[in-house]
Nucleic acid binder design. Structure first.
Lengths: 119, 119
DNA sequence: CCTATGATTCAACAATCATTGAAATGAGGA
DNA sequence: TCCTCATTTCAATGATTGTTGAATCATAGG
């Protein structure tokens, strides 16, 4: 991931409404959520949520698909992965032992993750 | 790491000069660099670099120490680690298999890291 | 004590970003 | 086709953020 793209992603995640949307969509999983449902969940106006969704999409954090009259957004796990990789390259380069604890604490190992019941 | 602190960190890293400073200081390692040297390296005015350093410090990305007349800044590896952990919790929660590739690619495993010659 | 150096603070200005409400687009059903 | 629902687009406004240069603070040395 290029630095410029990483900065765009960081900027996207630095805004309260947008970060809440991303976390919501990660929870929602691959099924995603319609724009209207997202707007209701994060309690902002439709036009405002649309503004933020567009920004997140541009940042590669979410991905849209049309379904009937709705537009369904879901988390872009690849984009999120790429951002983590970018951050880890900067953080860990030459200092792998320092970042190791973070990996252990991140609940990223299947054995430590509480599986959702196919939500 | 709390959401608010994470947003502050994301905001800090979303700015070109600040991200360059963080990457520079990660490269520099625990020895760190003086504010003036950082200003020269990233080619911005002393007052401007001071502004950004303060922001990065507030975001928990760097840590200062006085040394004679200079103020030496170094990367806050704990803060960076915490941010990675926060991102991974959001990204991987319920989907550990999706983030796994990022971990492998991040050059975070000692065996894949080219050790610096005590720079 | 005085001067020089390294860094920060402050106020002003410019630029970017977020929010709002009204109008427009696009898809499906009567 | 006409109507309705879901979402986006647009222009205007307010809020936040970045930059600049001058002034200030802190440390070291003569």
């Amino acid at each position: 991931m290029e630095e410029r793209q990483a900065r765009t992603a960081f900027a996207a995640l630095s805004q309260e409404t947008r970060l809440r949307i991303v976390r919501l969509l990660v929870q929602a999983g691959p099924d995603g959520m319609a724009a209207g449902a997202i707007a209701e969940a994060v309690a902002v106006s439709p036009s405002n949520v649309s503004f933020h969704l567009k920004d997140l999409e541009h940042a590669g954090m979410i991905v849209p698909r049309r379904e009937a009259r709705s537009i369904i957004y879901s988390a872009d796990f690849t984009g999120l992965s790429d951002l983590i990789a970018f951050l880890m390259k900067d953080c860990c380069a030459g200092h792998p032992e320092i970042c190791a604890p973070a990996l252990a604490d991140a609940q990223c190992k299947p054995s430590t993750v509480k599986k959702k019941a196919r939500a």
